[in-house]
């Protein structure tokens, strides 16, 4: 379900239904009675492809990947140039 326009859809739950059309009709009252919603998707449970549970391991980095994050550069700057004023990048955010 999508809470507001422009938000990404997030998984809310599942329903038993004879087809997609009915699933949408039923999902509305079963999952959006209290939470705001502007749009729903349904997909058959057997059409979802997932990685396996043990595969969770492959998502965990084994080496330092901080070079991928802006924050680590700001940190380095702060260390190297103590006079460096609060980063303009921080102000952007």
């Amino acid at each position: 379900m999508q809470g507001r326009h422009r938000d990404a859809h997030v998984h809310a739950g599942d329903v038993h239904a004879p087809d997609a059309e009915m699933a949408l009709v039923l999902a509305k009252e079963n999952y959006t009675r209290r939470d705001p919603c502007v749009n729903l998707w349904v997909v058959r449970a057997d059409q979802i492809h997932a990685t396996t549970r043990p595969a969770a391991e492959m998502f965990v980095p084994a080496t330092d990947k901080s070079y991928r994050f802006g924050g680590s550069y700001r940190q380095q700057r702060r260390v190297l140039q103590s006079s460096y004023k609060a980063s303009y990048r921080d102000e952007d955010q």
């Binding site: 329903v15 239904a17 039923l26 009252e29 079963n30 009675r33």
Partner: peptide, 11 residues
């Protein structure tokens, strides 16, 4: 007749 429709009809 099914739980989901029960909920929907109640709304």
């Amino acid at each position: 007749p099914d739980i989901e429709s029960d909920v929907a009809m109640s709304s």
